[in-house]
Each structure stands twice: as C-alpha cells, then as structure tokens.
C-alpha cells in the first residue's frame, strides 16, 4: 500500500475521511467493549482464583482499550450515552465472536475465543502503528503494551488444556464452533476501501486474515487440534458458507446480542440516567 500523507485532526476531515475514520473506530471500540463484558461473565466462576483474577484483568485491559477508541469517536461530537448506553444495539459493529455467551463452565471456550481474538487483535494493531490518522497512531503503543500478556495467557492455557483427553476434546469442540465466528473479525464493510485507500491502516483485512489463518491453524495443528483454512473465491474472499449466519460487522447480530446489550445497560436504565458518570480524566490528559 502506498505511503499516505498524514491526515489532520478530527475537525479538518472531509466527509469521506470522517466516515472511514469513524467506521474503523466503531469496530475497534465495539469489539473491545463487548468481548470485555463477556469475559466478566467468568468473574467468581473461573476454574481457580488465579485464573479468575487473570481473566478479570484481561477484561479490564480490553475495557481500557475500548475507552481509548470511544474517546476518539467523542472527537466527532458523540457523547458516551450516544456511543454506549443509549445506542441502538443494531448499530453496534463488533464481530459476532465477541458477543456469544459461554456455555456454563466451558473454560476451553473462553481460552479458544481469547486466543482467536488476541491473535487477530495483534495483527490489527500492527497495521495501525503507521496509521495516517495521528489520533489513532498515538494510542496504539499503549494498547500493544498490554496485549502481549493476553496472547501469552491464551496460548499457555491452550497448550495445557490439550495435554489431557477431556481438555483436548473440549478445545476441539470450541475451535469447531468458534472458527467461523472468528473469521468475521476480518469481514469487510462498505468503508474498507476508503480505510485502506486513506492509509488509516497499512494492511488490508484480507492480508491480515491470511496471516491469522496461517498462524492459528499452524499452532492448532501442532498441538493436535484439527483446523483447516476456509475456502475462498478467486479474490481471496472467504466463501459465505464458511461464515456464520450473523457476521456482526454489518450490524446483523445473533439473538444473544440483544439480551447482552440489555444486561449491559440495565443499571443505567434502572437508575434513570441520562449521562455517564466520569471517574477518570480524559485520555488526552493522562
């Protein structure tokens, strides 16, 4: 991709640039926010105290990252209630991988999911390090610093889970179930051409997907789990049959999302709030 001139601040973007920046930010923020909330389902339910604290910590990291991305959407005049608490759930753009509930006690699901997600996030962040939009570029380093632990955590667990027969079976089931959903992380929207064209990221979704598939199928095969690359058409796009019914990126979510969003916003509604309480400084002042 050709090196692109740096874009300016949020107030100086033209309509196309602004639409592309917002589209990219919504996906980044929504993915992090929704998967973080899902991880908190494990609070006091993880297999040991240690694993409970570790996954809660990962959830807190992801929430912190969501905050950084939502804050950049606030640059365009959106308030926190617009972005989260009073938003139409059908406008959320996260991948459906992030919203699926965990079957009770299915720790292999949590580990496989975070393995798939964090490997993808690693590639996505790498592609943002040289983003032409300075406000995005400047925040990537902070996030990358916390992502190393997530990948280490997921892979360490994965390797240990497969060392016993029951664990191996559960990992295999989770991989079979979640692999198609993980592919939705790389699904394109109508804004992706502009995103790449403007240099908002330096690698296309297809290129990242290709590397992701190679990495995860490589690791899974190595530890004795069956995983195959999905079939693609001549343009390298994943065939529809390889994807789940709901992709998420286009606003089409599973039924679980409506329930989940309702849970997330329950307290806000019950307390009759019309604004979000602020506990922390603006990320720009940190």
């Amino acid at each position: 991709m050709a090196a692109t001139e740096s874009l300016s601040g949020p107030n100086d973007l033209d309509e196309r640039e602004r639409a592309a920046v917002e589209s990219l930010l919504y996906r980044l923020a929504d993915d992090e926010f929704v998967i973080a909330d899902r991880y908190t389902d494990w609070q006091v339910r993880a297999p040991t105290v240690e694993s409970d604290i570790a996954i809660a910590n990962i959830a807190q990291d992801e929430l912190g990252h969501a905050r950084l991305w939502y804050d950049l959407l606030e640059d365009f005049g959106h308030s926190e209630p617009d972005l989260i608490w009073e938003r139409d759930p059908e406008t959320f753009r996260h991948s459906t991988l992030c919203e699926l509930p965990f079957a009770e006690g299915d720790w292999a699901d949590a580990i496989v999911r975070s393995y798939f997600y964090d490997e993808a996030e690693h590639l996505r962040l790498e592609a943002l390090e040289e983003s032409s939009y300075p406000r995005i570029r400047d925040r990537v380093g902070k996030i990358v610093g916390e992502e190393g632990y997530h990948r280490e955590h997921a892979e360490n667990w994965l390797r240990r889970l497969v060392s016993g027969e029951e664990g191996r079976e559960r990992v295999q089931e989770a991989v079979d179930e979640l692999f198609p959903y993980a592919l939705t992380l790389f699904e394109e929207t109508e804004d992706d051409e502009a995103i790449d064209d403007l240099g908002l990221r330096t690698r296309t979704l297809s290129a990242m997907r290709e590397e992701w598939i190679e990495t995860v199928t490589g690791t899974l095969t190595e530890i004795g789990i069956d995983a195959r690359a999905p079939e693609t058409d001549e343009d390298g796009q994943v065939l529809t049959g390889e994807l789940p019914d709901h992709v998420g990126r286009d606003g089409d979510h599973t039924d679980h999302w409506a329930t989940h969003y309702d849970e997330i916003t329950n307290t806000y509604r019950e307390l009759g709030r019309d604004h979000a309480a602020r506990l922390m400084e603006d990320p720009d002042d940190e």
């Binding site: 040991t48 105290v49 240690e50 694993s51 604290i53 570790a54 910590n57 632990y149 280490e152 955590h153 360490n156 240990r160």
Partner: peptide, 20 residues
C-alpha cells in the same frame, strides 16, 4: 503465593495477582 501447575503459569498468575 499462587496455585499453578508449572513455573511458566505461576509467573503468569503472579504478575497479575501480586504485581498489578
């Protein structure tokens, strides 16, 4: 202390439980 099956996992848990 932390409960962990091996050194690598112990270090992984300890950094969160005692270093965060």
């Amino acid at each position: 202390n932390v409960h962990a099956p091996d050194r690598e996992m112990a270090l992984m848990f300890a950094q969160i439980q005692h270093g965060r």
